[in-house]
Design a protein around this nucleic acid. Structure first.
Lengths: 227, 227
DNA sequence: GACAGTCTTCACGACTTCTTGACGGCGCTG
DNA sequence: CAGCGCCGTCAAGAAGTCGTGAAGACTGTC
């Protein structure tokens, strides 16, 4: 669920935004001041901040600048000021968008979606690490731990596909049908001969004792499991 | 230098934008139609697109959608339409910002800066250095280390695109599909012949022993990797 | 129109990867 | 204990991929 931090000192705006956003499935945090906003960004890690420029106390612009010293969270600025130099100042301070009040709710929501969408796709692919080797799913790379440090292990495309699938579902049993389907595609009613050959190749490269697999376990008659 | 693609059918707007942007040090490309715009994104890889919605021929919204099927280049939409539903449609189609005409030039420039800043990869290091050569991503320049000091190496546009993509994702495997998409655009179901030829050219210019690549490694059947 | 630079296309040999079939080990069942 | 199914291993040939050089197409400049 997307978390939005709404920063505004006017209660009715907070209420209006909060209601609208919650109705659309957002998780909403509210702040009334710049200080509170900065604290909540630290505590709750919102996915996007809606920030009124006209705050009492710390100026909204200062909030933007403070945030930008350490965070890249998208900031959509709200303001009654229409002057170009205000917009320029806010945007150059690090804001992502600038909406002047009064604003249409649907436009604001669309701009929020755009801001979140842009920053979202930072999908961090995990690195699966074992005592013997380490599978980096993002880099498509496998390193084997040795006394002299890590050594890169070269896998062929088929071997990588198999290992990747097992690593993504580590702990779970993956049936032979699933493996054949994902690696060789739907058309093939291939035999599981392939599976055996390629699994053996992976084990030879990664397992300390390939004939006694410790990580890539066979479940006879069912499939394979990465533990 | 930041490259901006301006898409508008009105000559005076093109001229105004082009003049203002060039005066501020932008590299400006101009397009009068949606088709031309799509082609120029493929050919010139702009860092940001300014797109008028009211184009003859292909609708501006369609241009946004087409681009978003394969590219993440920031798009700032210009439009005379002020209705919220137009803004929502454009933003949800994948635009990054929406500015209504008539617009203030300084505001547009600030929004462009914001769009470019956001998309700027979180490059911790805009210069990638190896023992043999040095890739300056900001300056789009490659220098080769020699006993007599550094020598600038000239790369063709295609070669640079390839090297840049690999350098930005250094350490990670980049699939042939990704490389073809980013360098040659979406329309082309090109063969990987191109890839092989241009990679060979880059290696000839940068690798100490081009037939035994040390930095630009081939992962057979999968892609290439900059280590 | 010649020219230089670039991109595309193609064919070939070298190399890597995949498939296929055979063989033996293991555990289970009748 | 023999038969059966399933699995791991091996090796050889088939299939595919990569690097390379060279020729032609295309572009913009002089």
């Amino acid at each position: 669920m997307t978390r939005v931090l709404v920063v505004d000192d006017e209660p009715q705006i907070r209420r209006a935004l909060s209601t609208n956003l919650r109705a659309r499935g957002y998780d909403v945090e509210l702040a009334e001041s710049g200080e509170e906003a900065l604290q909540l960004v630290v505590d709750r890690h919102p996915d996007v901040v809606v920030l009124d420029l006209g705050l009492p106390g710390v100026d909204g612009l200062e909030v933007v600048r403070s945030l930008r010293t350490w965070s890249r969270v998208p900031i959509v600025v709200l303001s009654v000021r229409e002057a170009e130099r205000d917009k320029v100042a806010a945007l150059d301070a690090g804001a992502d968008d600038y909406v002047t009040k009064p604003f249409g709710m649907s436009e604001l929501l669309a701009r929020l979606r755009a801001a979140v969408r842009r920053s979202a796709p930072a999908v961090d692919e995990p690195v699966v690490d074992t005592a013997d080797f380490c599978v980096d799913l993002a880099a498509k790379q496998v390193r084997r731990h040795t006394p002299d440090g890590d050594v890169e292990v070269h896998l062929t495309p088929t071997e990588w596909s198999l290992l990747e699938l097992l690593a993504r579902r580590r702990g779970r049993l993956v049936s032979q049908a699933d493996l054949l389907l994902e690696v060789w595609g739907p058309a093939n009613e291939r035999s599981s001969d392939h599976l055996r050959v390629h699994m053996a190749a992976i084990r030879r490269k990664l397992e300390p004792d390939p004939s006694r697999p410790r990580w890539l376990v066979t479940e006879p008659g069912m499939g394979y499991r990465f533990v």
